[in-house]
């Protein structure tokens, strides 16, 4: 119960700080954000776009962990949990793609230009899509659970290639790429103390929100399955 209040307060604070704190050339007071050359006012996206992309990855990690657990214990509830995690991950993945694309229009001049980051989020979308396609193609609960677990584990071992290796060895415009000189590795150097604090707070808030959504999602799915079994 207390964590719900905590989430409420935290997210409200993040919204207020992230949207209204001014970006100035020379940060003086505690609420000033520094000006990052090449990003300027666009830099505020970091408080809302990065957490969604982060959640898309976390959700995928959760789906994989519960898939492994399913393969070990053969408990159908674990499959439901993995499935719900993937569902919510899909939502956040779409959100990250759309917000990133809108931002790219104003920061880089076009909605989509196959930057390595854009390629990797697109691949993540494809993986989620393939997972749902596979689930709808198999009949039989246990078979579906096994096949989708195996597929999500295999897909997960390729994810590090997308998220961590490719954007860093390939050239790109996204902050944090290999040849990024003007905007630098944003998290480490160009953000000042209070910007970092707000950024991490927003990561925490979004993560809690994700777990709540996931919790509600899988509980309702389990009840639905249980009721269906009683009726049949």
């Amino acid at each position: 119960m207390a964590w719900k209040v905590f989430l409420f307060v935290l997210m409200t604070l993040v919204c207020i700080a992230g949207i209204t704190f001014p970006i100035v050339r020379e940060p003086v007071t505690w609420y000033d954000f520094p000006l990052i050359p090449g990003l300027e006012e666009n830099a505020k996206i970091i408080f809302f776009h990065v957490p969604t992309a982060w959640l898309a990855t976390i959700a995928f990690l959760m789906a994989t962990l519960y898939s492994i657990k399913y393969l070990r214990k053969k408990d159908l509830d674990d499959d439901v949990k993995a499935y719900t995690a993937a569902q919510i991950g899909m939502i956040f993945c779409v959100l990250a793609t759309v917000t990133g694309s809108v931002w790219a229009k104003f920061a880089w001049g076009s909605f989509w230009n196959w930057d390595p980051r854009e390629t990797s989020i697109f691949a993540l979308l494809l993986i989620y899509g393939a997972l749902f396609a596979l689930r709808s193609a198999v009949d039989g609960d246990e078979k579906r659970a096994t096949l989708s677990s195996v597929y999500s584990i295999i897909a997960f071992v390729t994810v590090p290639f997308f998220i961590f290796i490719m954007p860093r060895i390939m050239k790109g415009l996204h902050p944090g790429s290999a040849d990024d000189t003007n905007a630098g590795p944003v998290v480490d150097f160009k953000m000042n103390q209070n910007m970092q604090v707000v950024f991490y707070l927003s990561l925490i808030a979004f993560t809690i929100l994700y777990f709540w959504m996931w919790n509600v999602g899988y509980r309702s799915q389990i009840i639905k399955d249980k009721l269906q079994k009683q009726i049949n």
């Binding site: 719900k4 409420f8 409200t12 919204c15 209204t20 009840i223």
Partner: peptide, 30 residues
Amino acid sequence: IYIVLIIVLLVWFGIFGFLFSLDKRLKAIE
């Protein structure tokens, strides 16, 4: 920007309220 803030906060309150009531209802069903 303050208009944006008010709208975002309203959306967040809406989502929070929705999730909260959903959680409560689910607990009752459980």
